[in-house]
Design a protein around this nucleic acid. Structure first.
Lengths: 185, 185
DNA sequence: GTCTATAGTCCGATAGAC
DNA sequence: GTCTATCGGACTATAGAC
């Protein structure tokens, strides 16, 4: 549309992931990201509240999908099953992007301040899932612990999916971790 | 001893907690904390890696106590029981400081960047607990999920202890949440 | 102990779409 | 004219380098 190239936000996201991969998060300045995306530093901060957020702005979509899925779930399931199933199906949002998920995960693993942001996003996701369970009549602290356990299972399943060579899907990895856990307890 | 007042680190911790309570974390500069503690800004960064860390440097002691406790635990317990028991007994390090725990918790709850740091500390604690379980023969992902569930229980128990008016101990709050959960599942 | 780079904020200006 | 996206420059505090 007109004077500027479209999708400045998407270009910033892409430029950031490339630069973080090439030279590391801390060795990359916001000015460099903006330059590669063809905008100014000021524009970067219009789209992202801070430098870290450029890697995390999709978490909100994931959270919305999880909450909707829990709300729509059939009651007979256990709370933990409902959360795990919601995470597995919402994870489809990430399918297809396994390569960029790998780059993103590598950048986060290498940088403590990015780990912090990731944990906050996952904690917020767990809190939203707990709230959705609560609205369906699951009492506290069961709702919270089911939500946090579900997110732990998601995290382990995600790591395995990333590490896996074969064409395993994220949803199947998550369900496999859950099944493994049930078998052991 | 001698030329300087003793325990500059403790004075910095105390000054920071006071200032964060009085005017909020973001409205407090490191220079102001250092001034109230009677040292220079430079000295602050000698003791704490960054501004946030002034509220978190005791987490390491807690982590060490938890790991030791898991290592010493009797094998017949379930992994989750071992983790919960380790957290409940290590929590004695925090008993007695319920008032400052309240101030600290309020500051963290009001400030996203402090929440991030807290989550990283708890995640690191969970990873260390998982490693200790692993060393005792508990396989992954059971060890990790037991550790993360235990930390979730700790968190809920800690919140209740903080909110409680009566003279409940932290250890008892944690065990109560665990018992409540077992009864419900 | 000083000096400097970078993150992040604030106010305002400008260019185009409608 | 209004609305939205971009840009410019000055400014403070954190944090690390020298």
């Amino acid at each position: 549309m007109g004077r500027w190239e479209a999708d400045a936000q998407g270009r910033l996201r892409q430029a950031a992931l490339e630069l973080f991969t090439e030279r590391g998060y801390e060795q990359t300045t916001v000015a460099e990201i903006a330059e590669r995306a063809g905008v100014t530093e000021r524009t970067f901060f219009r789209y992202f509240a801070d430098k870290r957020e450029v890697l995390f702005d999709r978490s909100n979509a994931l959270q919305n999908a999880v909450v909707s899925s829990i709300e729509a779930a059939d009651p007979p399931q256990s709370p933990l099953e409902a959360v795990v199933e919601a995470l597995a199906s919402a994870g489809e949002l990430l399918e297809g992007g396994r390569d960029s998920s790998r780059l993103r995960t590598a950048a986060i693993a290498a940088t403590p301040s990015l780990q912090e942001r990731e944990l906050l996003k996952l904690f917020t996701l767990a809190a939203a899932a707990a709230e959705a369970l609560h609205a369906k009549g699951v009492p506290d602290p069961t709702a919270r612990l089911a939500a946090e356990s579900g997110v732990s299972i998601f995290r382990v399943g995600f790591e395995r999916w990333i590490a896996d060579d074969a064409d395993e899907t994220l949803a199947r990895s998550i369900r496999a971790v859950f099944a493994e856990l049930k078998a052991l307890t």
